[in-house]
Nucleic acid binder design. Structure first.
Lengths: 346, 346
DNA sequence: ATGAAAGCGCTAACAC
DNA sequence: GTGTTAGCGCTTTCAT
């Protein structure tokens, strides 16, 4: 691999001149003829600046750390893709950090907080994008205190600035309003079990919509579980125990994967969706079309959320003050076949 | 951030001694007392070696580049997860390179091959794991020529050593044998459109099983399409045109996502699965359970494939000759509800 | 308009 | 058993 010195020798100039030319350094002018000789030499040697040496010198790696609980989770695909493309566009590379892999590396002398500090302390990344409710609030706060450039995606944490969320509350209201329009009044919520701001905002949207319609939310109507198939499966259980006359006629599930589990559990209980009970999910995916039955969903601007996270982190690295952004692109309902008028209305 | 010099000063020793102690350098013995002073100093300063400086010096980054067409694709989740966990265990970080992001970064002066060389030429990664049929064969061969440490996942390429695959042929045979056991004889194949070794091996398993059963594969029985919902949807089209008396009574789809598309298209055509036609897919996922109908699949050891890829790359970096491995863990059939005896047998 | 020189933080060969 | 030294490849003052 050719280095700067090789190029300089071939072009018969000083390495520093090569550096200036190749970086397009604006401060110093360079004779066109010299420039051309340098560019040609670099090309013929297939020269590529060594990222490590450059990073060591400039203290920038042009690399973003992406912390996620689980790549491969349906719900994250779109956001990840947005982050990836925006990072590429901004000339940044993405270092993948599956959060779970931090937990069990056998190094018990270091606590979890310390591990995240390592990531950035090693100097491999310029900043972190922390997606979804991976870290608990105290940990996030800790990172923020240490001035680690940080953008939270799909969540907020008290006292930490630099976050991107979608309008969860609005998305939830949209779901409930769809159910109202179909004639439902006893609407249940399968919420997110996590103690996060996002979980609260989705629940809040549900409660606001119900209140505005003058409907009192009965305690038995709301349950919660992890955003996974198994989570939805288990969470909906208490609702099945209730007599059909008081039990919700429709369920709003705060996660797509959770809704898949809910659908499965309802089917196992012999309930037909949507004839006996309607189901609508927060977040959309192409596969929702192919579930049994095809699932009505709320489509959120998740791609934009991912892109915006990168934009924010990059500008934070350039010294801009970190903001808290809500992507205000309108959520859309995708009506499929899991929602219908309540049985009593038939 | 404390550096080596800071630690040395505090421990009142030379930086090189600190380096030796902290790396656990076996060549040189160190007095226990000194060692303790150093370790204590490092701990109290929260010292972390700078990865860039170390990498510049040692010419190793302990980072693996993961090249994929599309994170977030269901079919890749398990493999990605295997790679991620194995990498973490081996003390390696993973740099994510979505293959598509290389295509459109506006830098048209460089051809695609050149871009991959850059990745490694920059010195950011020690080697590459290239997963799925992203790059065409010439490009892969080109990378291999340049001696870039490389492991191919889920594909092979003539002349390139260093690959991990599962036993696609065996998996395919298992699928066909399941259909035989149900009484099917006219079995169709919805293959992979890609010109890859993997596509051929899956088809080969199908043909071998058919031959062994003494069944001649009619030309109209085999179609192919991309491994996506839309791909499966479109690919199955020609089969729908055939009269029920000659058309396959069962379809083996060589990808999970493709099978979802096939299921959708069959339903749209008014065909009931499995009553009118059976469908079985290569590769499994939790969600297959929740499709309409629940999809019978062949479960391959994809997690192992991902882990093995890391193991191979790491040992290749240590100078071991690159091998071509087939994970020989037995594939399993997951019988759900998309397969049943053929209509004529009823 | 270009060159000289120092140094980012670390490791490794060698000296004592 | 520990210190000295050189240098990985680059950027960035400061000279000229």
């Amino acid at each position: 691999m050719a280095n700067l010195k090789d190029v300089a020798r071939l072009a018969e100039v000083d390495p520093s001149t090569v550096s200036r030319v190749l970086r397009g350094d604006p401060s110093q002018a360079v004779r066109p003829e010299t420039r051309e000789r340098i560019v040609e030499a670099a090309r013929s040697l297939r020269y590529r600046p060594n990222a490590l040496a450059r990073g060591l010198r400039t203290r920038r790696t042009d690399t973003i750390g992406l912390v996620m609980p689980d790549i491969g989770n349906l719900g994250f695909a779109e956001v990840t893709h947005g982050i990836q493309t925006a990072a590429a566009q901004a000339g940044r590379l993405v270092l993948l950090i599956e959060a779970s892999s931090l937990g069990d590396d056998g190094d018990h002398t270091l606590d979890t907080e310390h591990k995240y500090e390592q990531l950035i302390g090693d100097g491999r990344v310029d900043g972190l994008i922390v997606a979804f409710a991976t870290l608990d609030d105290r940990l996030v706060a800790h990172l923020a205190e240490r001035k680690i450039p940080l953008v939270l995606v799909n969540r907020r944490t008290a006292g930490v600035h630099g976050s991107v969320v979608v309008d969860d509350e609005r998305g939830s209201r949209l779901a409930i309003q769809h159910l109202f329009a179909l004639g439902h009044a006893r609407i249940g919520l399968v919420g997110l079990a996590a103690e996060t701001d996002t979980a609260r905002r989705r629940e809040q949207g549900y409660r606001t919509a119900m209140n505005q319609a003058g409907i009192r939310v009965e305690p038995g109507w709301t349950v919660a579980g992890p955003a996974s198939i198994a989570g939805g499966h288990a969470a909906v259980e208490p609702i099945l125990g209730q007599p059909a006359s008081v039990r919700p006629t429709a369920l709003f599930v705060a996660s797509l994967l959770g809704a898949v589990g809910v659908l499965g559990r309802l089917r196992a209980a012999g309930l037909r969706v949507p004839d006996d009970i309607s189901v609508i999910a927060f977040n959309d995916h192409e596969l929702a079309e192919h579930l049994d039955p095809p699932l009505t969903t709320i489509r959120m601007p998740n791609l934009r959320m991912g892109q915006e996270a990168v934009r924010m982190l990059v500008s934070a690295l350039d010294g801009a003050p970190a903001g808290d952004v809500m992507i205000d692109e309108e959520p859309h309902i995708v009506v499929r076949r899991s929602t219908a008028p309540p049985p009593s209305a038939g």
